[in-house]
Design a protein around this nucleic acid. Structure first.
Lengths: 245, 245
DNA sequence: CGTGGCGTTGATTAACCTCAAATGTGGTGG
DNA sequence: CCACCACATTTGAGGTTAATCAACGCCACG
């Protein structure tokens, strides 16, 4: 499992692992002091639903540890993942109390929360927060558009390769260095969750993993650990032009 | 053709058709006066490329008249439309000089432009603009996620019906009333552009239009004008749960 | 009257889905 | 440590959907 040591007690903002990447990134120490007072933490276990599509959400939050997924579902059950929240990513929308998608913890998750109303005031009074939030929202929009290209036009094999590229880049983001040569990727998602992300069935996902393995593009170590011997080869399989992050 | 009467001369902000929906929506008269000084207009003919993916874009802009499409393309030519700009929609990203997608005028387009650098200062000094821009960006993000559900999980028939629903809603937006009962939709897009939007081929788009017509869901009057006798029936075909705008 | 852009329709194929069964894996309690 | 269970994953066979390849019709325009 993807157990993480999650502190139950409050973190001091100065010690927060996402201090320089979350919506508070550009705040000075005075501003941080204010946020420190207003924030509170909530933790969710792997598999737990954080918010239901269409329901009111009384807080906004940044992910501190763990991974969450955003999904939309049609009446007959067809499900599409529409986003993924990783540490420093933001959930919620100032000025709107309901969410348009279901939010589920993929691993254990710790969130740094603010009650809605006070946070809305905060966005008005702290330009640094508003600015960073706009920037992060635009990043998400770009990522969503990249994903539209994948969903609309890529083959199953390209989709799997693209997912691995994304995940490798995300891991690299945390450790500064760019993925190159031999790369490891941890899959936090089940085959079904990957299928929901890629607009495929879980069987097709499984088959494409097998095919990529047979062709030497990846090695599988258990079901959740992938080794990529040649990252450029993977980029090629993903039809990735290297434009986006 | 989709000819529109586009004024060549400058518009006074007070007379601007998008005055209350664009990024200037919440500005007071002092702020508007400032914008009025800084803004300039550019017009583009139908079919003209406004910006190329990866190239620098030296301005940001709001669409005043007309429709533009945002597309991304893979090396082998597969193309996906990742967004559509209608009057009051915003193009560009403060703090970044390149665009990640190609922007093309679908009809003749008039844009209200600001040079990049001055605009970035403007976002810092006018909270009303920053706020409205954040709101519009979040709207786009929601729309992109709705589209991800369509691309990943809907059938060709549902995709066409969904497109018609979106277009009908957009037209209704301008005239306040909600689509209901008998509804007309003008298609500004060619079959090919629709295919690129929906992740289909143009042949499939054509076939599904024929099928929806045969089944009485729509009437076709020429290639570009659609009549929907029963909007609820269309919503049903689109598998639309009515959550989004 | 030809020409080019756009759209429709038909036949065939390929990619992916569906249904079904077998196998692997990690966690639990005896 | 092992037996067992629940669930995730793999694999196979066959069906469906939409893509591909190809031909033709409809205009608008020179």
């Amino acid at each position: 499992m993807n157990q993480q040591v999650i502190p139950n007690l409050s973190i001091h903002c100065g010690d927060c692992p996402i201090r320089h990447r979350a919506i508070c990134a550009r705040c000075d120490s005075d501003e941080i002091a204010k946020l420190d007072q207003m924030k509170y933490y909530r933790s969710f276990e792997a598999g737990q639903t954080i918010a239901w599509a269409g329901d009111p959400l009384e807080f906004v939050a940044s992910v501190v540890f763990g991974t969450a997924k955003l999904t939309r579902t049609l009446e007959d059950g067809r499900t599409q993942m529409v986003g993924m929240l990783l540490p420093s990513d933001f959930l919620g929308r100032p000025g709107r109390s309901t969410v348009g998608y279901t939010v589920t913890a993929v691993t254990d998750v710790l969130m740094c929360c603010f009650r809605r109303k006070p946070f809305e005031g905060l966005v008005q009074t702290m330009p640094h927060v508003a600015e960073t939030l706009l920037d992060k929202t635009m990043d998400e929009l770009e990522a969503a558009r990249e994903w539209m290209l994948l969903l609309g036009r890529k083959t199953a094999r390209e989709k799997i390769a693209s997912l691995l590229v994304i995940l490798a880049r995300r891991e690299a983001e945390l450790s500064v260095k760019k993925p190159e040569g031999r790369v490891h990727v941890d899959l936090v998602l089940t085959r079904e969750a990957m299928a929901d992300y890629l607009g495929l069935t879980l069987e097709t996902v499984s088959r494409q993993f097998s095919a990529l393995k047979k062709d030497g593009v990846i090695d599988l170590d258990g079901n959740r650990h992938v080794t990529v011997p040649d990252f450029d080869r993977l980029l090629d399989e993903a039809q990735d032009d290297g434009v986006m992050g």
